[in-house]
Amino acid sequence: MLSADGITLSYDRADIVTGLSVEIPDGSFTVIVGPNACGKSTLLRGLSRLLTPSAGRIVLDGREITSYPAKEVARRLGLLPQTAIAPEGITVADLVARGRYPHQNLLRQWSGADEQAVREALDATGTTGLAPRLVDELSGGQRQRVWVAMVLAQQTGLLLLDEPTTYLDIAHQVELMELFRTLNREGRTIVAVLHDLNHAARYASHIIAMRDGRILAEGPPGEVVTADRVEEVFGLPNVVIPDPVTGGPLVVPLGAPTRREAQR
């Protein structure tokens, strides 16, 4: 269980999120959507303990997240940040293996279980063939899938993903979203920040719509992804029609954003 209770999150003394409360449904595939600079990634950073609230608290599995040692948090949740930098000269296999670091200590060194976790993570993300290569040599899309593999190697019950489909072509985007849905169906709780509303509508079980550091709506895709709500959140004239594959909502833009939105 992961929740925020009246949190305020700031950068350089400027409040981005103020007095926000939210509870991530256990076992859900939750997607956070909203326009640029609305606080989506800031909220995710707060939920992951990368950013400490100046007010309020984050609760993980019944305890304030700051009460856990860092390694214990990493055994409970895996985080894919928006920007990640690999050490120079590291191979894909070694980077993914770093996902097993939270499980290591003086009494428990590298084991067969760790090796298997790395193999499964590479296989799930289609990066097994990249294992011996240097991360520096990879394309942006390949590198993104390798970072996802590292997070999967942690084998946590909770995954926080900040724009996980960045740099990926449409085929790899769908492949990765299908992987996340499979992981969710196998019991993992997933929280992702996405820009693609139609990916959110198709794959999420719970959507949180944000604007200006506030939550405007949350709930199942059919309740949140409506034409009026999309225009309220994004300033985008649109119609919402049934997805011909899933029957869920599908957003079709009608034209340019409204003048009010364009001036933001």
Rank of each mutant, 00 (worst) to 15 (best):
L2C: 04
D5C: 13
L9Q: 02
S10V: 05
D15R: 05
T18A: 15
G19T: 06
D26P: 10
S28M: 07
S28L: 05
T30G: 05
V31T: 06
V33K: 01
G34E: 00
G34M: 02
N36F: 07
A37W: 11
C38E: 02
G39Y: 02
L44V: 08
L44W: 08
R45F: 12
L51A: 05
P53H: 13
I58T: 04
V59A: 07
L60T: 01
R63L: 14
I65Y: 09
I65D: 03
S67H: 12
Y68M: 10
P69Q: 14
A70L: 14
K71T: 15
E72G: 08
A74Y: 01
R76F: 11
G78L: 05
A84W: 12
A86Q: 06
A86G: 12
I90N: 07
T91F: 12
T91Q: 06
V92N: 01
V92M: 02
A93K: 08
D94P: 15
A97F: 15
P102A: 13
P102Q: 13
H103C: 11
N105I: 09
L107Q: 10
R108T: 05
Q109P: 14
S111Y: 14
A113T: 13
E115K: 12
E115P: 15
E120T: 12
L122D: 05
D123F: 14
A124N: 04
T125N: 08
G126Q: 04
T128R: 12
L130M: 07
R133G: 03
S139E: 06
G141A: 09
G141E: 01
Q142L: 07
R143H: 06
R145A: 01
V146H: 01
V151I: 13
V151L: 05
L152E: 00
L152Y: 09
L152N: 01
A153M: 06
Q154L: 07
T156R: 06
G157T: 08
L159N: 02
L161P: 00
E163L: 04
T166P: 03
L168E: 00
I170A: 14
A171Q: 15
A171P: 13
V174N: 07
E175I: 07
E175F: 14
E178G: 10
F180A: 03
R181D: 06
R181P: 04
T182K: 15
T182R: 15
L183C: 10
N184Q: 12
R185W: 12
E186K: 12
L194E: 04
D196R: 04
H199C: 15
H199P: 03
H199T: 14
H199F: 15
A201W: 00
A201S: 09
Y203V: 06
S205H: 07
A209H: 04
M210L: 12
R211C: 07
G213F: 02
R214Q: 11
G219C: 09
G222F: 07
E223L: 10
V225D: 01
T226W: 06
A227C: 08
D228A: 15
V230P: 01
V230T: 01
V230L: 08
E232H: 10
F234C: 02
L236E: 08
N238V: 06
N238A: 08
V239Y: 13
V240R: 04
D243C: 03
D243R: 00
V245E: 03
T246M: 02
G248V: 00
P249A: 05
P253N: 00
L254H: 06
P257Q: 14
P257L: 13
P257M: 15
P257E: 14
T258K: 11
R259G: 11
R259P: 11
Q263C: 13
